[in-house]
Design a protein around this nucleic acid. Structure first.
Lengths: 148, 148
DNA sequence: GGGAGATCGTTAGCACGGCTAACAATGTCT
DNA sequence: AGACATTGTTAGCCGTGCTAACGATCTCCC
């Protein structure tokens, strides 16, 4: 087994993700949204209305955590809670127009940042990066599958 | 400009990093160390003794934050503070034998996890992933260069 | 119908990590 | 010696993650 290679790769992946998020966080601060809130908002905007529990599972956090994230987003007027008439335990969550707008703005900001950071990358490298991201997604999915 | 591509890539990179870290955090929990602590310990172990300020810069956090991380690591007996006789403002930080051991163990654990997650990846994909990680590192470095 | 149990979301309370502001201690430089 | 800079710490705020416990609601089965 190529233990050494995997070992290095694990560490570098870990480190790269950590530092990338620290950088992106700074940028996303401009929208007044933390990474978890932005991520959750994104899911709500693109994933249509969904319940709090579904959102928690999608974001891989526990319900109490999602309750607070949602509360924060609602306080900012970015999303809205809606009760379900058929099952009154459920809370459906949907994005407000402002939510759509803020997400788009943050997206634009991040793109601008990434664009400058990616400026020196050749078209070919862009494709390689995209491929790498895809592989990371697969790895994460694989990890989720077999817990520990 | 290929705005659409960059936009998607930015989001996916963001999301992938976020979810990857959430998964790795669970694994690293087994060592009783959070991601920031583990990362800092790693720098100390491989980067030799260095001052708290240097460590803070390396980890891209503010000194007060690093003070607490270091305090936690010291309480666990993984690192040791050492005063500088020549400049008594400085605090040198070095890993204890236990620190080396714990880091190695966590590393092994993570490798095991990654190995299973990567099991379905072909050798070629491994190389692609490595390439992707390298590009992420460059992007992060580029971001650091031009702040905002 | 009615009670047992499952499910959903919330609240309470803990630990941690990020920040700024303010401070003491120390070093440096004029 | 005195003014200034640098280093690390403390205090205090906010956000994120968790578990435990709870109320409300739904379901299922007798």
């Amino acid at each position: 087994m190529n233990g050494h290679e995997s070992e290095d790769l694990a560490d570098q992946l870990h480190s790269a993700a950590l530092h990338l998020l620290r950088q992106l966080r700074k940028e996303d601060d401009a929208s007044g949204l933390s990474a978890p809130r932005l991520s959750a908002l994104s899911v709500v905007v693109f994933g249509g209305p969904l319940t709090l529990g579904e959102l928690a599972r999608a974001e891989q956090v526990r319900p109490p955590t999602m309750t607070r994230i949602v509360t924060g987003l609602e306080k900012d007027g970015l999303i809205k809670r809606k009760g379900d008439p058929r099952d009154r335990r459920l809370t459906h969550i949907e994005a407000t127009p402002k939510g759509h707008k803020v997400l788009a703005a943050g997206r634009a900001r991040r793109v601008e940042k990434l664009a400058s950071a990616v400026g020196k990358l050749e078209r070919k490298e862009l494709a390689e990066l995209r491929r790498g991201v895809q592989l990371v997604r697969e790895v994460v999915a694989s990890m989720r599958g077999k817990p520990a």
